[in-house]
Every structure is written in structure tokens, then in C-alpha cells.
């Protein structure tokens, strides 16, 4: 019954990650993925970005966004594989891969944003 207890927590991570990703990822990807590389605005300087990123609130918001968005991916992608490709029989492998991947990404994000910055 361990599965029953952990499923609501995973769903909570999924839904809060979905909200965080919806609120913040479009603007970040628009700026750093399209507007800046296409040269529509001049790229912000490294020193400016570093000072913005080092601000404690930015670190917390970014870490929260990254961790929640990764668990959002893990949960949703797990069911995409189950339903979209009918891989329910590989569920153990998929569960380990998805949540394990999200966990590994969260550790990297934590390292990059807390001691690494």
C-alpha cells in the first residue's frame, strides 16, 4: 500500500509543477531561446545576470520552478508512455526512469543554484 500513500504527493508535485511551469517557463524560454539569440534585443551582460541570479529570492524561485517542473514532467510523461505508447507492462522501468530522472535533475539544480552560484 506504499504506492497509495505516495501517489497523492506525486500528483501534488505534478499540479504545482504544472502551474509553476505555466507561469514562468514561457517568458524565460521566449527570452533566452528566441529573443536574445535572434538578436531582437541585446544580450544582457553576464555580471548583470549573475547578480540577478544570486539574489536569494531568485535562487529560491528558480530552484522551486526547476524541481517542481521536473516532477511535473516525470508524472505526466509516465502516463504519456502508459497511454500514448501502451507501455504499462514496463511500469517499473518507467517509474524508476521518470522519477529518478527528476530526482537527479533536482540534485543538479540544487547544486547549481545553491553552492555553485
Amino acid at each position: 500500500m506504499a504506492k497509495r500513500r505516495v501517489e497523492p504527493l506525486l500528483w501534488l508535485l505534478f499540479s504545482s509543477g504544472g502551474l509553476a511551469a505555466a507561469l514562468l517557463l514561457p517568458v524565460l524560454l521566449l527570452l533566452f531561446g528566441l529573443v536574445i539569440p535572434a538578436g531582437w534585443v541585446s544580450a544582457p551582460g553576464q555580471a548583470h545576470l549573475l547578480s540577478v541570479a544570486r539574489f536569494p529570492l531568485t535562487r529560491i524561485v528558480l530552484l522551486g520552478l526547476f524541481v517542481l517542473a521536473l516532477f511535473h514532467w516525470a508524472h505526466r510523461f509516465r502516463y504519456t508512455l502508459y497511454d500514448g505508447l501502451q507501455l504499462k507492462h514496463l511500469s517499473t522501468l518507467i517509474i524508476v526512469g521518470c522519477y529518478g530522472g527528476a530526482l537527479a535533475g533536482s540534485v543538479i539544480a540544487g547544486y547549481l543554484l545553491l553552492p555553485g552560484l
Binding site: A69, R76, F77, G84, G105
Partner: peptide, 25 residues
Amino acid sequence: VLRELSSVFVAWSVVFLLLLVHAVS
């Protein structure tokens, strides 16, 4: 299914932004 697949690009965005954070640091 495309809506469900959006999660893959959510994950990619996180990877891309982590590369940015690392580069800036």
C-alpha cells in the same frame, strides 16, 4: 497526446535554463 507531450518540452526548458545558470556562474 500533444498536450501530454508538452511535458517533454517543459523538461527540456529546465535543462536549457540549467545550462544557462551554469554558464553564468
